[in-house]
Nucleic acid binder design. Structure first.
Length: 253
DNA sequence: AATAACTCCAACCGCGCAGGT
DNA sequence: AACCTGCGCGGTTGGAGTTAT
């Protein structure tokens, strides 16, 4: 069992004071990032290095974009989550000025609920009978939103954990017709498309598509190298167009 | 006005990986 | 090869703030 890195007596925990923030910023301004282990002592902070790193990365860094996520960012998060799963750092890497922690929090507090309200399983981005509002299961045109308090949200988080571990091994499924749907959900999708949710779904821009301009993409998938494709997409290599366009790529089948 | 319920997010925790010895 | 150390990541928690009753 590894001993905790932050077990030193006398280390502060909890919220950072203005003075601590100032010390950290000034130190990093003078000496640069890195060497987190030794930084607290050098900077005169009674914090563990890990805590300093987190504070800097998630809050104090000058290039951090604060404030609400705009619609484009939200769309991108949904698309990238469909591609990458809960790899928040990779997702945040595609959103300038956003941190993995911020993206993760936004997903859990906003997007996840929005998807659930639309009857979409946020774990796999498929329409889901189990996550759909009860009334929709019996009557797809009904309009009952899922009521998600803290407790149920936490339960969902835990479900997510379980599925996350398996999602890493999930395979990409490429459709050749362009708009193939999971067959068991097809009829309900049609129902929902005709419901009041359809407009919201459009607003959400749930088109999880990847362009085929790149020969590289087909190659990756034909060779069953989903992981390599994911990595390339995450790094947004030029041969992978991460934007929207014709061929539908359904993930996490 | 009081307080219970809920939301949100900053911060913590534990694990895995990479690099060094 | 085995061990150690530091870093980064994703999951989880605590508590302040907000809303509902």
């Amino acid at each position: 069992m590894r001993k905790p890195c932050c077990d030193k007596e006398g280390n502060n925990k909890g919220a950072w004071s203005k003075q601590e923030d100032h010390k950290l910023v000034e130190y990093i301004r003078a000496h640069g990032e890195g060497s987190w282990r030794s930084l607290p002592k050098a900077a005169g902070l009674h914090r563990c290095g890990k805590s300093c790193r987190l504070r800097w990365i998630n809050y104090l860094r000058p290039d951090i974009k604060r404030g609400n996520f705009d619609q484009d960012e939200e769309d991108l998060i949904i698309k990238l989550h469909a591609l990458l799963g809960n790899r928040w750092s990779l997702i945040a890497g595609r959103l300038p000025g956003r941190t993995d922690n911020e993206v993760k929090n936004y997903w859990n507090s906003h997007i996840k609920k929005k998807l659930l309200r639309l009857g979409i399983d946020p774990n796999n981005h498929k329409l889901s009978l189990t996550t759909r509002p009860r009334a929709q299961i019996s009557n797809c045109s009904d309009r009952v939103g899922a009521s998600l308090g803290r407790r149920s949200m936490d339960a969902n988080t835990q479900n997510n954990n379980v599925s996350q571990s398996s999602s890493d091994n999930d395979k990409l499924r490429v459709t050749t017709s362009g708009h193939e749907r999971p067959s068991d959900n097809a009829s309900c999708l049609e129902d929902i498309e005709t419901s009041h949710h359809s407009q919201e779904r459009k607003n959400l821009n749930l088109d999880l598509t990847i362009s085929v301009h790149s020969p590289g993409r087909e190659t990756y998938l034909n060779e069953n190298r989903a992981d390599a494709f994911e990595t390339a997409a995450a790094n947004c290599r030029p041969e992978i167009d991460c934007g929207s366009s014709p061929t539908t790529l359904l993930l996490f089948s």
